[in-house]
């Protein structure tokens, strides 16, 4: 397929590091050097990297809150509709909208909807599921989920120049630098 000339042939440069300390130091230096379009890949979350990449703020909590409130509303109106509108049943003059008795079901609906929002929201915002990704073409990238740490400087970064960036990464003393094809 022809994607046109605008598309870079290279997606980025990927450097592999052997331990936590090395990736944290390298990422810090990369950010200090002015690169913005970077991503790190680690077998487990590293707080230091989230600090350096300013990743602590995200909208997951908001999505879950909205999901939970929606669940609560659905739970209430389901019971309200059944007891007050659709089939009102007068039992000894007790109120039809007996909301205190509706609380358990409202609570369960809140948790149910919020949990689905957590899973689906997290997935959608992470652009997952994505069964294939150019990174998976790199032989050693499979260690990113095991015991190695990867730093990728993406080609769309304004400072990205193939040779200069490669040299910059080499100076961070990685295990290896590989090109990620688009």
């Amino acid at each position: 397929m022809n994607h046109g000339p605008a598309r870079p042939e290279l997606r980025g440069l990927l450097a592999e590091f052997e331990n936590e300390e090395a990736i944290v130091e390298a990422t810090q230096k990369t950010v200090d050097a002015g690169y913005h379009h970077i991503e790190t890949y680690t077998p487990y979350p590293l707080d230091e990297l989230l600090d350096i990449q300013h990743l602590h703020k995200n909208k997951v909590a908001l999505v879950i809150l909205i999901g939970g409130l929606a669940g609560c509303a659905v739970g209430f109106f389901m019971q309200y509709f059944a007891s007050v509108i659709h089939y009102p049943l007068n039992v000894g003059g007790r109120p039809l909208n007996s909301w205190p008795a509706f609380i358990p079901v409202m609570f369960e609906c809140t948790v149910l909807f919020a949990s689905f929002s957590a899973l689906i929201g997290m997935m959608v915002m992470n652009k997952l599921p994505r069964p294939h990704h150019p990174l998976f073409d790199i032989e050693r990238f499979r260690y990113a989920t095991q015991d190695r740490f990867f730093l990728c400087i993406e080609a769309e970064d304004p400072y990205f120049e193939k040779d200069a960036t490669r040299q910059f990464l080499e100076e961070l003393k990685p295990h290896e630098v590989t090109e990620v094809e688009a």
Binding site: Y41, P45, L46, L55, N58, N126, L128, R130, P131, F136
Partner: peptide, 11 residues
């Protein structure tokens, strides 16, 4: 689901 351990995903 194509998990690749990106830090932005981990966050």
């Amino acid at each position: 689901m194509g998990w690749r351990g990106a830090s932005s995903h981990w966050a």
